[in-house]
């Protein structure tokens, strides 16, 4: 029997967030380049952040979104502030709203797609400003498409076991 949420400790949630957000950041920066030259990885920090924003909205405040973006910038060695700004703006526009918390994976994936597109557009703009010239779009588009396509898979595994088994 699970305890009511208001009496449940915050530590399991915080631990869960730490155990998913930190590895997603590390994996995103890790040397995963294949010998064939392909270096394809979705935006794992964005996926993880969004999943937690859906599951536990109050544990995803703006400063955490900013921090994750900034850490991503630092770990990949890119211009500082680009992904921090992109995530902040995207979440401010398309974050899971109060009345829409939870829900089916389909609509949630759609909302994520919108959020990811906003994040990518802002990142392109900010990155271009930081580089002093228009940034290339090929890598960004590839990364974005991969992120949006793979989100439902991650969402499925992160969804609660009970709901996952009740496909209609």
């Amino acid at each position: 029997m699970r305890a009511p949420l208001e009496r449940r400790s915050a530590w399991p949630t915080l631990a869960g967030m730490a155990l998913t957000l930190i590895p997603s950041l590390l994996l995103h920066a890790a040397p995963t380049r294949l010998p064939t030259g392909m270096d394809l990885l979705p935006l794992l920090p964005l996926i993880t952040l969004f999943i937690w924003a859906v599951r536990r909205p109050r544990y995803v405040p703006p400063w955490l979104i900013f921090l994750i973006g900034l850490l991503q910038d630092l770990l990949i060695g890119g211009p500082m502030g680009v992904w921090a700004l992109a995530y902040l703006v995207a979440f401010s526009i398309a974050r899971p709203r109060d009345e829409e918390g939870g829900g089916e994976i389909g609509p949630v994936s759609l909302r994520f797609a919108v959020l990811a597109l906003i994040a990518l557009a802002v990142a392109w703009g900010a990155g271009s400003v930081a580089l002093g010239q228009p940034a290339g779009t090929a890598d960004l588009v590839t990364e974005g498409v991969l992120t949006i396509i793979l989100f439902p898979v991650f969402a499925f595994f992160f969804a609660r076991r009970k709901e996952r088994s009740t496909f209609s």
Partner: peptide, 8 residues
């Protein structure tokens, strides 16, 4: 760590 990203 490595990343062949759009900006770096």
């Amino acid at each position: 760590a490595e990343r062949a990203g759009p900006f770096v």
